[in-house]
Design a protein around this nucleic acid. Structure first.
Length: 573
DNA sequence: GCCGTTTTCGGCCCGACTGTTTTCAGTCG
């Protein structure tokens, strides 16, 4: 199996860390980090590009030297320069550098003076009080290292967007009760609607006599106040999440919102553009020389560099600045574009509500249609439906449809894809359905090629329509199974099948990168909630967020189609 | 090590905070 982009990127990041510790040219170090980011974000595998004799120097931040190095890694699995550096500087120092507050200079000092190589060494040195003796270090730094070393694993963890939202909602309510609060927004990856969140960055504008900062640091869910200043404070909540609050002058609100929304890579791209126009953008505004020329709104900031407003979900430096320049930004999909949910369960298997309740809940959300996709018999734990029970459900739906006025229930199933790629129910019953959704619920550990073959074989079945949660990942709980997504997408397109973006906030499967890959492949997707109860239908916005991050427009998503067109699209005949 | 509407050399995003100093280096976002 060929090497993953992530592994290549990790090698370059580690090399950058170690070179930085050694005191190498900082722009050379940055070049490796930039390259790592480019490689990590790229939707196609480097191995494949090389196989196709593509010129890697066409990628941003990749020049002749790095193209050669990537080739060497793909061919040999190793990076000779990294091996060479390892002989001088232990690889584990790169781990230590991930501790907040420890950068290359301090790690170097710790290594040279105290022979610290590992996290364990560091912990012992801090506990024995040797670190405070070093020049440039002191009591507080030692204390900080002690604490951060202990909570290292916790700080590293990103939480699911939905978890962040629950926390953010309470915080918003609490903070908005402060005196004189005007604007309130949460910037960062939360505003970019990333599937996971590392911390919260809250921005507010407030009148002179506001007590917002005092209220913030005394919030009852605070475990620790990490820093407290007049305009900026940081707290750590009992859940471990760290939260920043900044009080911003009104005239800088747009500039600050832009700055703190990021992503970092997007900001750098925009600021580079500003440099060319001889203007400067920072979190206070846009400046020409000393003169402030904009900053009240984000729109103003973009306008100064000749760009239209760019939606937060797009701000990942994945080509959005260039597209904006050329007036080619996508018209992103909205919740209102969705006309139905195509993956829902009922109490017939592991759902909680009846057919009628699900249908009514969908109608209430303004949908034209909803499909019922209960599990098939192989999912015994979910009391999956066998042939007989499914036929009964079909009959019930037909009868129910006659009585429902403003919604149509589509007859479907979430049929198990068995290990050999065959489907869990025979064609004679599948053909009675409007369409099918196929899914993997077992044998996650097949090899990449076996798993790919399995899924392609499943799609060979003429009654297969949509591949549900295509990688099986559960955020922070279960890794995606190994599968060649590009082949799956190509295969789906050739066969007239589609793939699902599962909007369940614990899944969000496909990732944004994978959705982008689907778009590039020309394969349309379905955004479904996998609802197991009526309230789960409200997961749809999470799917929409993810889709927007992948540049998807209503035309890329088939459950934006009216019923008649949807049926025609799903038909493989 | 990359890159070019200041184009093959000489730049590389920008400012704030922290802890250590006594004017600043290191780190972060």
């Amino acid at each position: 199996m060929s090497i993953h982009n992530n592994e290549i990127a990790n090698m370059f990041d580690e090399l950058a860390d170690l070179l930085e510790i050694e005191g190498s040219n900082r722009f050379r170090v940055r070049a490796y980090r930039n390259a790592a980011r480019t490689i990590r974000k790229h939707t196609k595998k480097m191995a494949q590009l090389i196989e196709q004799h593509r010129d890697l120097t066409e990628l941003p931040d990749i020049g002749n030297d790095l193209a050669d190095k990537i080739k060497t890694i793909v061919e040999t699995g190793q990076l000779p320069l990294l091996e060479k550096v390892h002989s001088r500087t232990p690889a584990t120092l790169s781990q230590i550098m991930k501790i907040r507050g420890l950068g290359p200079k301090r790690v170097k000092a710790l290594h040279e003076s105290l022979k610290i190589k590992t996290l364990d060494d560091l912990k012992h040195a801090a506990n024995s009080g040797r670190i405070r003796e070093l020049e440039g270090f002191g009591k507080k730094t030692e204390q900080m290292i002690k604490m951060r070393t202990e909570e290292f694993s916790e700080a590293e963890k990103r939480i699911k967007l939905i978890e962040a939202e629950e926390i953010a909602t309470s915080l918003r309510e609490y903070i908005k009760k402060s005196r004189g609060i005007k604007d309130f927004n949460i910037a960062g990856s939360y505003r970019r609607r990333k599937d996971t969140i590392g911390d919260l960055d809250i921005l507010v504008t407030a009148g002179k006599n506001t007590d917002v900062m005092q209220r913030f640091v005394t919030y009852d869910r605070v475990r620790e106040v990490l820093s407290q200043r007049e305009t900026r404070s940081t707290i750590r909540l009992r859940t471990g999440l760290s939260v920043d609050l900044r009080v911003i002058p009104e005239k800088s609100y747009g500039a600050a919102l832009h700055y703190f929304t990021g992503s970092k890579a997007h900001n750098i791209a925009v600021r580079k553009l500003a440099l060319k126009k001889k203007i400067k953008i920072n979190e206070y505004g846009v400046f020409k020389g000393e003169k402030r020329i904009a900053g009240n709104t984000e729109k103003e900031v973009y306008a100064q560099v000749g760009l239209p407003y760019i939606e937060p979900e797009l701000r990942e430096n994945r080509g959005e600045v260039d597209a904006a320049k050329r007036g080619k930004l996508p018209e992103l999909i909205n919740l209102e574009d969705i006309r139905g949910d195509l993956h829902c369960h009922t109490g017939a298997t592991d759902g909680k509500n009846t057919l009628k309740e699900m249908a009514q809940a969908a109608a209430k959300r303004g949908y034209e249609y909803i499909s019922i996709n209960d599990h098939s018999k192989h999912m015994a734990v979910a009391s999956g439906l066998g042939e007989k029970k499914l036929l009964e459900q079909i009959e019930t739906i037909d009868k129910l449809n006659e009585t429902l006025e403003d919604i149509v229930i589509l007859k479907s199933i979430e049929v198990d894809i068995l290990q050999d790629g065959s489907l869990d129910l025979p064609a004679r019953v599948l053909k009675e359905l409007d369409f099918t959704v196929g899914a993997v619920h077992s044998n996650f550990n097949l090899s990449r090629s076996q798993q790919t073959k399995r899924l392609l074989h499943a799609m060979d079945n003429p009654y297969f329509n949509i591949l549900a949660h295509p990688t099986g990942r559960l955020i922070n709980a279960r890794k995606a199974y190994e599968v060649d997504l590009e082949k799956i997408m190509q295969g789906a397109k050739e066969r007239g099948c589609f793939i699902e973006l599962n909007a369940h906030p614990a899944r969000l499967d496909l990732t944004d990168d994978a959705c982008l890959m689907a778009k590039h492949t020309g394969l349309n997707i379905v955004i479904s909630t996998d609802a197991h109860r009526t309230s789960d239908l409200d997961f749809m916005p999470y799917g929409i967020n993810q889709a927007r991050r992948a540049w998807l427009e209503a035309g890329d998503v088939i459950n934006c189609l009216p019923l008649k067109k949807l049926k025609k699209t799903l038909s493989r005949k």
